[in-house]
Design a protein around this nucleic acid. Structure first.
Lengths: 112, 112
DNA sequence: CTATATACCTGGATTATCTAGGTATAGTAT
DNA sequence: ATACTATACCTAGATAATCCAGGTATATAG
C-alpha cells in the first residue's frame, strides 16, 4: 500500500483482498488493479505486499488457488475465496466498522 | 492497541494521541484512560505502545513535555501539542478520511 | 529487436505494535 | 505494620505487516 503514505490498516489489506475475491475469482495482478480502480486510486498494493499476503491467505485456508493460462497464453494463478474466507471477511468487516466508528468518535469528540 | 485484536492503523495511534492532546495538556496514563473512555472501550493503548510513541512525537517536535507533581505528590509527565503537531494532526485526519472512505467504497462495491 | 505491459515471485530492511518485564509512590485493606 | 491495588513512568526484545528493490518470463507494440 502506498499513495496516501501510511494511513493504512494492518490486516486491512487481507480484508480488502477477501472482499474483492468475494465478487469472484481473480488473479494477483488483477487484484492490484481492481483495488486501485474501486478505491479511486487511493490504494495501490505493492506486489511485494500482495503476493506474500495471498500465500498466507492460502496457507490459512481462506482462499484456494489454481494455475491457468490467460487467453494470451501467459500463465496466471487464480484465487477463489473459501467458506472460511467468507466468514473471516465478515468478521474483519465487523472489526473494521467497530474500529472506524471508534476513531470517528474520538476525532469528533476532540475536534468538533 | 488491543481489544478488537488488530483492526488498527499504524500511525493511527499517533493521530488519536494528537487529537486528544489538541483538547489540552495530558499525561501518559491519562491519555490511555481518556482514549478508552472516548472510544467506549474499543481502544486500550498498551503502555509499551504509548510511551515510546510519546517519545517519538516529542523527538519530532509534535509535542512538548514537562514534569510536574500530581496533587497526590506522584511525579507526572505532561504533554502538550505544538503548532507543528496541530498541522500534523490535520494532515493525518485528512489521510484517515481518504483511507476510510476508500475502504468503504471497496467494501460497499463488493458486498452490497 | 527493443521497450513496455503483464504476471509472478523473494530476500532483507523498516516500522508499529506487542509482550513482558522493571521501578516507584499513594491509598486501601488486613 | 504489611500487603495489595491502582497509579505512573519506562525499556528491551520479539513479532508481524509492509516496503523496497530486486529477479524471472511472456506477449505485444513500436
Amino acid at each position: 500500500m502506498r499513495k496516501t503514505d501510511r494511513a493504512a490498516a494492518p490486516g486491512g489489506n487481507a480484508m480488502l483482498v477477501l472482499a474483492l475475491l468475494s465478487t469472484g475469482e481473480m488473479y494477483g495482478y488483477q487484484i492490484i488493479e481492481e483495488l486501485e480502480r474501486r478505491s479511486e486510486r487511493v490504494f495501490r498494493l505493492q506486489e511485494g505486499t500482495l503476493y506474500p499476503l495471498l500465500h498466507s491467505l492460502e496457507k490459512d485456508g481462506l482462499v484456494t488457488a489454481r494455475n491457468a493460462q490467460a487467453p494470451s497464453g501467459r500463465p496466471r494463478r487464480y484465487y477463489r475465496i473459501t467458506a472460511a474466507g467468507q466468514r473471516a471477511l465478515e468478521e474483519k468487516e465487523r472489526e473494521w466498522r467497530v474500529y472506524a466508528g471508534a476513531v470517528h468518535a474520538v476525532l469528533a469528540g476532540c475536534t468538533p
